[in-house]
């Protein structure tokens, strides 16, 4: 099996890896790079547990080949906090108890951060639609939506 050599940036760090032509970015992150914070809930683009950003755009890493990461900047859950300083949305998830089992949480946080990077004034409806690609089976979304709205309010100084 011939492996493909890929050069990319992950959470700001220059990263090189070898991957099979059929392997997804999610496989690469989890199985080759040991970055298991990104989760696999379906492998078919339906749950959002594998959410990452590619050049700032939110994507399902299970739907993108590892080889396609060449030359792009990837952001994962491991890069959301800066060192041991949590991102405000991470703090708000804890304050609002916006997680129960926590398997969906990395995906939600990456997605929520991507939203907050675009706007600090999302309506509840916008938050709900933005996060509609992320499944959570435990919480019923109530506390997740509140946590994101509250983060936006805090960030805009409201």
């Amino acid at each position: 099996m011939s492996q493909i050599h890929v050069t990319t940036k992950i959470n700001g760090d220059e990263t090189e890896f070898l991957c099979g032509p059929e392997e997804t970015l999610l496989d690469v992150l989890r199985d080759h790079l040991g970055m298991t914070g990104t989760k696999e809930g379906c492998g078919t683009g339906d749950c959002g547990a594998c959410s990452v950003t590619v050049d700032g755009r939110l994507v399902c890493s299970c739907l993108m080949l590892g080889a396609e990461a060449e030359g792009h900047e990837i952001g994962t859950i491991e890069g959301v906090a800066k060192g041991d300083e949590l991102h405000p949305v991470q703090k708000k998830f804890l304050d609002h108890a916006a997680l129960q089992c926590g398997i969906c949480t990395p995906g939600f946080l990456v997605a929520a951060k991507a939203l907050l990077d675009r706007t600090l004034e999302p309506t509840e409806e916008e938050v709900r639609y933005w996060l509609a690609g992320n499944l959570c089976r435990c919480t019923g979304y109530d506390k997740i939506v509140r946590a994101v709205m509250d983060t936006a309010a805090e960030l805009r100084g409201a």
Binding site: R30, M35, T36, G37, T38, K39, E40, T76, I77, E78, V80, A81, L86, Q90, F93, L94, D95, A97, L99, G102, I103, T105, P106, L109
Partner: peptide
């Protein structure tokens, strides 16, 4: 309404689930 002890692990991706 205390913060859960496994909270930080779960919001940073450090928590280890079945497939991890």
């Amino acid at each position: 309404r205390v913060t859960r002890p496994d909270g930080i692990d779960k919001v940073t991706g450090r928590a280890r689930f079945g497939a991890d």
